[in-house]
Design a protein around this nucleic acid. Structure first.
Lengths: 378, 378
DNA sequence: CAACTTATGTTGGACTATCGACAAAAGTAT
DNA sequence: ATACTTTTGTCGATAGTCCAACATAAGTTG
């Protein structure tokens, strides 16, 4: 019943009675309980229609706080947000994930403490913490599993470490997965089948199907970086194989290709700068990268049949060129049935997709029926 | 609580009380209710351990019947089964799906009536009907959507037509999806992430992820037949595109390739016969088809990270050659993380996978908590 | 056969959820 | 101001679920 109020839309008791089919008195009782806990709050401004004006109330976003953290390979972003997903305070740091769990999570906990103070709230107001990590994660336990770029993190009990400082549920997931959640929360709330493609140093996909994040048997679902593409024959990849998508269309690969042509491009950012400055070669390279990615995505579209593909990650910020390349191939190669209603759109959240997804994950936990039940009965 | 008995394993009241944490008296009450409805029945043979011997009981498979139907392009198979999935009677027919819904579903209903009689049961014992169709289906409504090889079926209300004869829930799904369900029920009951590949005239995948069948936004998920493969450059496909997997590794494609070499191969069956007779060229062709399919599957494995891939469909009956080709490429091309615990296995159910999946779908509906609740309160 | 052990059946009561009806509140229309 | 309308608050009645304790049944063990 409370789930009706999750959207944050104000309702009246009479409306709820109508929607749930319960008696008005029952609705009143439950509303009272939720009000006492503070999860819902009255909101003024109800106009009478000839009688006593109804009293509106809605989810109280300030009832609890959540933390969202996006820990990347070389940088980290942490925010404190309310239950509506509005960011109250944030902190960014250049921080190498390779410095290990103790160092990184230590910084994280310190940052959370600072952000709470900045927001003028206390640790007791925290409802949950969501964390995104750049590698495979066993979501049920919150442990990274054989992460390639996170030395020292293998099977570390991340929730346990964080809970030494904050005694709240800690939800950990892959960074691409939480980006997918973030984009869905921001831009596609009605879409149950969404696929997010992150194109940066690596290339990965986060899949939301039937409204549920698909993590796969070992939590490695969506790893598209090392799929073989025909055009890549013979190109060596850091993974040891050849012909990987990442070795062809990843940021470092593009930079290398351009610098071989005499351009000054050593990083993904340089590639983007070149594109923005109108460099034709760079534009062509990015567009071709889009085509290569599209080649793989065409298969993915046929396989999972999403209704939206969101393209995010650093390289997606190089204008429409990447998107154009992807669209070009996907719409040509995928089945008409699957592409008929398929939209391919740029990321809305951009660099904040990850952290917003972590927030969304945490909010989802705080507002889950079980958590609400526990809060209301306590 | 009833869900504990779904597995069919006999339990005692005391065991159930232990497992559910409920009081023994509560368990007794519920057990009585289920017994009155007939859904569970006593099963003898309990040995005492020093006191009064416990009375065992378990799901009563005979309580309800279900119908499973696998309607293929040119043939149809219908069975009546009990709640354990045991087939009580079956009927097969050479029947073209292209003869239209009225004709095909008419035959289906007649066949069900005959099978019920054969099993000595009445229509009132029916709990649900599961149907598999060779094309995309909108599962919620049971309507085929733009099916390529089912003229006259577009958006037809299949459940409605069947329910004119049998007033029970009718569940419709894609044939590959129900094959996946069938294999899971038969051979991999513990596996939550399973992918079934059907290799026959067409090539398709049924994906079960986190225990749930993935149907995609329009119900076309798993359509791998028209993915482009590098080796297929220039080969025309019936879909109008070129380089499709199906045009290279589908049954007709293999037959055509072999007959171009002077072999007598006009159908998928001929190819299988050649392989079984030890024809080297045919074996090589099938193995190469396996490699081509493996090429696509490698991408799929990285994307959905299943723990089992089951290879079924007509061409999978040509011994281990197809499987060998698939394994060869998948284990080379997919990420070590994803293949570490991946098993690639032949179909156990074979030609009956589809119909058993339809049975499984129907049983799942009959034994769902809602259906049980409704039955117990009635 | 008597004592003991284990499992099942039964009963009355506590607790909760929900409803329907009535009373009160807070406006509008005349 | 008065009547009317619409919404909200309160209270007792009812049904359903679950439990704890007791009584009974059906074996084993000495």
């Amino acid at each position: 019943m409370f789930q009706l109020l999750r959207d944050g839309q104000p309702r009246t008791r009479a409306e709820l009675a109508q929607l749930t089919g319960l008696a008005r008195s029952t609705v009143t009782a439950r509303v009272d309980a939720l009000m006492r806990v503070g999860l819902i709050a009255p909101v003024g401004g109800a106009t009478s229609t000839g009688g006593r004006p109804p009293s509106l109330f809605a989810l109280n976003p300030a009832a609890r706080l959540v933390v969202g953290a996006d820990l990347g390979a070389t940088h980290a972003l942490v925010v404190v947000a309310d239950l509506s997903g509005a960011v109250l305070a944030e902190e960014r740091a250049e921080l190498s994930i390779a410095s290990g769990p103790d160092s990184v999570l230590g910084w994280l906990c310190d940052a959370v403490a600072r952000l709470l103070q900045e927001a003028g709230r206390r640790a007791a107001d925290l409802g949950a913490i969501g964390i995104g990590l750049p590698g495979p994660v066993e979501h049920d336990t919150g442990r990274p599993i054989n992460p390639p770029i996170m030395p020292g993190w293998d099977r570390v009990d991340v929730p346990g470490l964080v809970q030494q400082h904050f005694k709240v549920p800690v939800l950990v997931d892959n960074d691409v997965n939480i980006m997918a959640l973030g984009e869905q929360a921001m831009a596609w709330p009605e879409t149950a089948d969404l696929m997010l493609i992150k194109v940066a140093t690596g290339i990965g996909a986060g899949i939301i199907s039937s409204g549920q994040l698909q993590r796969g048997a070992q939590g490695t679902a969506g790893d598209l970086g090392h799929v073989r593409v025909p055009r890549g024959d013979g190109v060596a990849c850091r993974c040891g194989n050849t012909g990987c998508l990442e070795a062809l269309a990843g940021g470092p690969a593009l930079a290398a290709a351009l610098s071989a042509d005499g351009k000054k491009a050593y990083s993904s950012q340089d590639v983007i700068d070149l594109v923005r400055s109108g460099d034709l070669q760079a534009i062509q390279a990015v567009r071709q990268a889009g085509r290569d990615i599209g080649d793989v995505l065409a298969t993915c579209v046929n396989l999972v049949n999403p209704s939206v593909i969101v393209v995010g990650g650093r390289l997606a910020q190089a204008g429409e060129h990447l998107l154009a390349g992807i669209r070009e191939v996907v719409y040509r190669r995928s089945l008409p049935l699957a592409t008929e209603h398929l939209r391919i759109a740029p990321s809305v959240a951009g660099q904040r997709a990850g952290v917003l997804g972590a927030v969304s994950l945490a909010i989802g936990h705080v507002l889950s029926p079980e958590a609400i039940e526990a809060a209301a009965s306590a």
